[in-house]
Every structure is written in structure tokens, then in C-alpha cells.
């Protein structure tokens, strides 16, 4: 039972990170119908930025809380800037091009960013400074759920609530919903669609960056390649929940996280990534619309 609880919490932690990244995929897909292949790389850049900033600050002897806040802020700001730039360079000129062109451009961007970080930083695994200390009040539960798990879960919950509020109640949220329903119509009623798309990329990238920082500090090491696998898994989560649906992304993230955690715990840890890919293939074959997505008929 204890083993089960442990796996359950580690699944939730994983799942919430997947959910944070999946939100970026799903929001972008909802608005421009493009799989932002470079999103995993944005997440990796967020994690790397926070790694650089946190390490520099800790070398200069800043207190832990300010390190956490500043590193998180830097990660979000820079990832958002990267997301914005990527959209502007690689996707905007191709908005009216065939889907295949935009997708190839996205793959190119992903390869470019990955190798940019490889060349700019290092190809080795880097130890990530521990940003979340072990809290005293967590002592009695430490064998099943760690402090960093708790922080990750709480942050994710907060972010989700914030995002939902933003989309439901703010002006820009309304504009985003309108754009995703019908871009041309949104333009006609005076919504600056380009701005909405940029904002979507900025929000999605910042969320991924926060996820990146949290998981990197949880795992304790970082590498330029983490974005690839995390990106595919988060995409799986987004598809699982129904791409384009925000609650779907969260649900998909948790389902995927728990599946992986139990599968590696009870079956075999060698095939950790195979489970996610198999799940992805199975959903796409049997229920391409996902758990919460709507089946959309293609108009001719």
C-alpha cells in the first residue's frame, strides 16, 4: 500500500509537469491549429535559464527564497521571449501556407534550439541546484511524498486556477476564445489576432518554463535533450485529453503521469518511454478526439 501511495504521488508530480507543458501545446493548437513542435525546446530553455540564473545567484551567495523567485522569473521571462520570437520567425510567415510547411518549420526550429543550447552551454548533464528544501512539517510523510512533490503540485494547482480565471474572465482571455472559435470572424469584430496569437505563445511558454524549473530541481540534473522527450510526452497528454481543450490537457497530463508511474513501478522501468508512446498511438487510433475533445467534422 505504501508503495502504491508513493507511486501515486510520483505519478501526480510527473503528471502535473506534463500538464503544465501540455497547456502550451493545447492553447496553441486551439488557436492556430499547429503542433508547436518547438514547445518542448522552450521548456528546456526555461529549465536551462533557471539553472544558469540559480547557479550564478547561489555562487554570489543570495538567500534561497530570492534565488527561487528570481530563477523562476528569469525562466518565465526568457522562455516567453523565445516563444514569442519563434512564433514570429518560424510560424507567422507560414500562416497561410500548407500545414506540412508549418510543421516542418516547427521541427526545424526544434532541432535548431536544441543544438543552440548544446553549443551555447554543454552536452553533459549538469547538476541542478536544489531549490526546494525539505520542510520540517513534511517529515512524517517524507517516505511517500517529498517536499518538492508538494511544491510542484501546489504550484501547478495555482497556475491552473490562474489560467482558467484569465481565460474565463479577462479581456484577452475572451479574445483568445473568440480567435480559437473562428479566426476570421474574430478579426472582423476587431480583435487583433496577431496579438492574441503572440500572447498565447507567451503564456504557454512561461507555463512550460515554470514546469521546466520545477522538474529540473526535483530531478536534480539537466541536459539539452530533456525537451525532446518531455515535449512528446506532453503532446501525448494534450492529445489524450483532447487537443484544444484546457481541462483536457490537465486531465491528460495526470492520466499519463499516473500510467507511467504505475507501469514503471509494477511492470518494468526499462520501457518507461515506450508506455507513453504506445498510449499515444492507441489513443490516436481509437479515440483521436481525446477524452474531453469534440469530434470535429471536416468541412469541404
Amino acid at each position: 500500500m505504501e508503495y502504491f501511495t508513493e507511486l501515486f504521488f510520483s505519478g501526480l508530480t510527473r503528471g502535473s509537469i506534463y500538464a503544465l507543458i501540455a497547456l502550451g501545446y493545447t492553447m496553441v493548437y486551439g488557436i492556430i491549429g499547429l503542433i508547436n513542435f518547438a514547445h518542448g525546446e522552450i521548456y528546456m530553455i526555461g529549465a536551462f535559464t533557471s539553472f544558469v540564473v540559480a547557479t550564478v545567484l547561489s555562487i554570489y551567495g543570495f538567500p534561497l527564497l530570492s534565488i527561487v523567485l528570481l530563477a523562476g522569473l528569469a525562466a518565465a521571462v526568457w522562455s516567453a521571449s523565445y516563444g514569442y520570437t519563434v512564433e514570429k520567425i518560424a510560424y507567422r510567415p507560414l500562416r497561410h501556407a500548407p500545414r506540412l510547411s508549418a510543421l516542418i518549420s516547427a521541427i526545424g526550429m526544434s532541432i535548431f534550439l536544441q543544438n543552440y543550447v548544446l553549443l551555447a552551454q554543454s552536452s553533459e548533464f549538469q547538476p541542478f541546484p536544489e531549490l526546494i528544501p525539505d520542510f520540517d512539517f513534511m517529515e512524517p510523510f517524507a517516505h511517500v511524498v517529498g517536499s518538492s512533490d508538494l511544491v510542484i503540485l501546489l504550484t501547478t494547482a495555482l497556475v491552473m486556477v490562474g489560467l482558467t480565471m484569465l481565460i474565463k474572465f479577462s479581456r484577452i482571455g475572451k479574445a483568445m476564445r473568440a480567435t480559437s472559435q473562428d479566426r476570421t470572424m474574430a478579426m472582423l469584430v476587431g480583435i487583433d489576432v496577431n496579438k492574441v496569437i503572440s500572447v498565447t505563445f507567451i503564456i504557454g511558454s512561461a507555463l512550460a518554463a515554470i514546469g521546466g524549473m520545477l522538474i529540473a530541481s526535483h530531478i536534480g540534473q539537466i541536459n539539452f535533450f530533456i525537451g525532446f522527450i518531455a515535449g512528446i510526452k506532453a503532446f501525448t497528454a494534450a492529445v489524450l485529453g483532447g487537443i484544444g481543450s484546457i481541462p483536457g490537457a490537465v486531465l491528460g497530463g495526470f492520466v499519463l503521469g499516473l500510467t507511467e508511474s504505475f507501469a514503471t513501478g509494477y511492470v518494468s522501468s526499462d520501457y518507461e518511454d515506450v508506455f507513453a508512446f504506445t498510449l499515444l498511438v492507441l489513443i490516436l487510433i481509437f479515440k483521436p478526439a481525446g477524452l474531453l475533445g469534440r469530434e470535429a467534422a471536416e468541412k469541404v
Binding site: 516542418i104 526545424g108 526550429m109 543544438n115
Partner: peptide, 9 residues
């Protein structure tokens, strides 16, 4: 690989 990515875009 950097160039490959840039070439695709």
C-alpha cells in the same frame, strides 16, 4: 545540426 534546423525553417 544547428544548420540543419535553420535550413528547414
Amino acid at each position: 545540426m544547428l544548420a540543419f534546423g535553420a535550413v528547414l525553417v
